[in-house]
């Protein structure tokens, strides 16, 4: 995935079954953000792989003052990339088991 300067990783081990999974997001490279970044730290949250939209979570982070509006897209894309990877890994595991 593209290096957005925002890291998103699993905050728990993926058992491959749960649809709601804990993720952790933090800014690794503030220079890649458009807005002036104030260090908010690592943000942990749960994400429903089937129902939720990464951009909507990013919007909520903006609304909560964790990011500026100008960085909503980059945060959303970072979450989207990680979610896609998690889904891809799950699909691969399922097809391997078959």
């Amino acid at each position: 995935a593209e290096d957005t300067g925002v890291r998103v990783e699993l905050a728990e081990e993926d058992d491959g079954k749960k649809t709601s999974i804990a993720l952790r997001l933090w800014v690794e490279d503030p220079k890649k953000l458009k807005g002036k970044y104030k260090d908010s730290g690592a943000i942990e949250f749960t994400f429903d792989l089937n129902k939720e939209v990464p951009e909507a979570v990013a919007q909520e982070m903006v609304d909560s003052g964790l990011f500026l509006d100008s960085d909503m897209k980059i945060v959303g894309r970072s979450i989207r990339d990680r979610v896609a990877l998690i889904k891809w890994r799950r699909e691969r595991t399922i097809s391997r088991d078959k």
């Binding site: 690794e28 490279d29 690592a42 942990e44 909520e60 909560s64």
Partner: peptide, 27 residues
């Protein structure tokens, strides 16, 4: 604990805590 809980108007919970040193990219 240094973790702060942020609850959004949509009811989502964000748990914010300091990023460990080793996680940060060397500047």
């Amino acid at each position: 604990s240094t973790t702060t809980e942020v609850v959004t108007s949509a009811g989502r919970r964000f748990f914010v805590s300091p990023v460990p040193e080793f996680r940060l990219k060397e500047q």
